[in-house]
Every structure is written in structure tokens, then in C-alpha cells.
Amino acid sequence: MSALPMADAKAATVTRFRVAVYESTGAEPLDAGVRGDLVAALLAKGYAVTVVRPGATLARFTAGTLVVLGRFTEAKPLEAADGPVAIHFRDVATLTAAQAVEVVDGLRGGEALTKPGAWKPWFPVIDYDRCTNCMQCLSFCLFDVYAVSADKKIQVQNQTKCKTDCPACSRVCPEVAILFPKYRHGPINGDVIGADDVRREVMKVDISALLGGDIYQALRDRSAKSKSRFAKERDEDRALEERQKCLVALGKSLEIPPEVFASLPSIDEIRTKADQAAARATAALADR
């Protein structure tokens, strides 16, 4: 799947857009089946939805666009405004769920909402109750997903650069502090961490130690060896094959999907990135 074009948007650039299925004062309740179909269809299209029932109403909504759908018994203006909130009322009494969603799509218009499903939200999340700020993840990741905050703390900064379904950095974290909420298995998916899990993860780090203490160093050495061996023979194909074999072996032990390898930078770029990340990690650790 492709990454979102949002390029790690910050809150300021996010458009607030919410749909209220309104069944309170001035409106009739929808039939349960209609309500269910409508809410499911809106969610499937990527809209945040609030079902408003008598005696209860919207959660806080302080700015943005609010579309209010209902079977209104009182006349409602098509458009209204409440400070920074633009409100659109639309009667859905005669509409199917699909037609009501079309109405909402029309009101969304050119507003820059994320296209639903354009990106599987796969990225690391740090459990700061466990993280010791050792910076191993920063040194390990080749795709600039991690960064150091102004107060020298590790943070995930470029979520959309993470490679879908690749949980490799969580395997090199010695504290089992990296989660991927959409991962299949615990504890990486956020499940409770047992003593065995900690032991197992530490063993995984030992695997990398076996490769020379630094996985990318091992990759570089391996590549350098193959380069020198094959340079003479001018056999770049075999050098590439050697490198790929090495990567596949690492991929298996760290559960890196093959697609990640397809998008891996060249060995020279890996060398540069690894050196840059190591320098950033060293600087952050030295400044603490």
C-alpha cells in the first residue's frame, strides 16, 4: 500500500469533520436497522460519527465542519454557523444509507480528508512506561521513522515512512517498548508483557549481537566482502544475490516482510543513513 500524501501532518493541518446522526429534540428517531446501516456506511467511508439521542448530544466539537443528519420534525436551516463550527443540516427521511453517505461526500467537497483505506495505519508506538531512551530503534531504522525530541527523548515522528507490516524495530528494542497495534501477536500488539516475552526479546537482540553487534554493520561487512570478492570477477549479479541472501536470513529472524527489501536503499545509502542515525543517537545520549 502506498503511504499517505499527508506526510506526517501535524494537528494544525488536519481538517475536523464529523457527522452527527441526530435523533434528539426536533427530530424523530431512525429505525434501528436504518441507524445501523447509516453508521456502518459512514464509518466505512472514513467519517467520524456521533449518534445523538434524547438526553445526550455531541461530544466536544470546537472547530471544523459538522454535518447533522436526521428526520427533522422542525425546520432546520441548511447551513448554520456556531463560531468556528460550520453546521450543515440534511434531512435523510427519504434516503437510503448509501444516498445519505453521498450527501455527506458532497458536503465534504474539496476538504482535505484522508482517503479511507489509502494507507494501512502501520507504525511503531512507544510505551514510555518501558522505554529507557537507549536509541537502539533510532540507530536501527533505515527509513527515518524515529527522531529525537527537543528534550532528547526518542519519538516516532514520521509514521507514514514506516514499512507496512514490518515490525523489525520492535524486535531490536531491549525493553519490549515498541508496539505495533495492528500486529497479529502479543506483546507487540499491546498485549500484557510477561517475563517470557522480555526474555524472548532480549534473545532476539542477542541474535543481532551474533551478527557482529550491529545488524547494519553486519550487512555492510557482508556486502563489502561480496563486493571485494566479486569486483574482480565483475560479477555484480552474484554480489547482489549474496546481499539478498543475507537480507533474507535477517528478514526471517526479524519478521521483515519481503516487500521491505524491495524498497531498501542501496548499500551505500544504508551506510550513510546508518551513520547519520548512529550520530544522532550518540549526540542525544551524550547530551542527556
Binding site: V14, A32, L43, P121, P181
Partner: peptide, 18 residues
């Protein structure tokens, strides 16, 4: 027939810092 809020995907909202 209760009132509630629903979001398509909390992970995606978190990634966007929505």
C-alpha cells in the same frame, strides 16, 4: 438506541495527530 461516538480507525487518527 444509545448515544455514542464512533471513529473509523484510532490508529490512523493518532498517526495524523488528529
Amino acid at each position: 438506541g444509545v448515544a455514542f461516538d464512533a471513529v473509523p480507525d484510532l490508529c490512523e487518527l493518532s498517526a495524523r495527530r488528529d
